[in-house]
Design a protein around this nucleic acid. Sequence first.
DNA 1: TTCGCTGCTGAGTAGTGGCT
DNA 2: AGCCACTACTCAGCAGCGAA
Length: 355
Amino acid sequence: MTAGAVHGAGHGVDLLPVVARVAAFPRLRYMGSKHRLAPHLAAVFAEIGGRTALDAFSGSGVVAYTLKALGYQVTANDFLCFPGVIARATVANQSETLTPEEIDRICGPPADDRDFIRRTFDGLYFTDHDREFLDSAWSHIDRLHGAKRALAISALVLAAARKQPRGVFTVTGARYDDGRRDLRLSLRDHFRERAAEYNAAVFDSGRRCRSLTGDVFDLAAEPYDLVYLDPPYAPPRDDNCYIKRYHFLEGLATYWRGQKIMEGTRTKKLEKRYTPFSYPRTAADALRRTFEKFRDSTIVLSYSSNAVPDAETIAALLRQVKSDVEVRTIDHRYSFGTHANAARRKVCEYLFIAR
DNA sequence: TTCGCTGCTGAGTAGTGGCT
DNA sequence: AGCCACTACTCAGCAGCGAA
């Protein structure tokens, strides 16, 4: 499809090229990632139509990228830094890629003698060799600017995420090394592969897109046609702190500049970032305020069944500001495990569409 | 409430065997 | 040999878990 084809409530939009493009988006293992749901979301967005779109909690970036592929003028926002960098590289960036020479330089000898990562996370994450590479790569990245810098950081973040066992930085050491490829590959080789993936994701949509880093309530009130919301959810019992799991990626995206490591923690994580969406006591009010803020836009909200507040409450909150509230259930395919005790579980994801 | 940790599900794919 | 349907097994991913 051509950029802008999403006009006119999406009639005549050919989703196949969009779905194909989105499927190739570099995948980050991330809580609540919408990678698998992207094709469904694309169909919904195309049906809604419009010119401008906001992804207020962009996370892995795959939904903002989907909106871009549909021809929207996209604003991606997240309160963490590394999602902002990924969106800058893949959504805001329309043309720049890393050249083979630039990738070689980043993978080559260091430009200075920095060793913050090697020293700080000794014995916690990755091999000495891998952490030396992270310092060395950053010595070159610090000489890059704009989209190229964002691309290089994105590739470095994804390399680290892929190589970390279980994909979460709440666990230290190499205890779970089962010999799989992602763990065997050096971070340098990972970086080369991830950089190629991010390069391949770059395309020109012909619509100006941007990436912001900040609180959703601090966003300037602009009349977006479409606002997509995938907020962190407040589990009834468990905590869902993103920083706890992804602190290393957040630090790596900034070379820990302006970040405060909690030295007393075993994992050397960063301080927890408060968000009202994560607490059962404040989540409903945070949603209410968010809906109020975007009451002039079509709101699309992703929701999964375990969250607080429940679906009824969310629908009621939406009806306070929107006249037409629709709830859709996206059924995933069944899959058939061959294990003796593989239970078949129906997984469904709710999608609220409020016009 | 905050801490670090891992068992289990199911998607992916190589393997198997019957058939043309 | 080539194709297809189905099986068996590996391994990536999980808005979660128990302990203090």
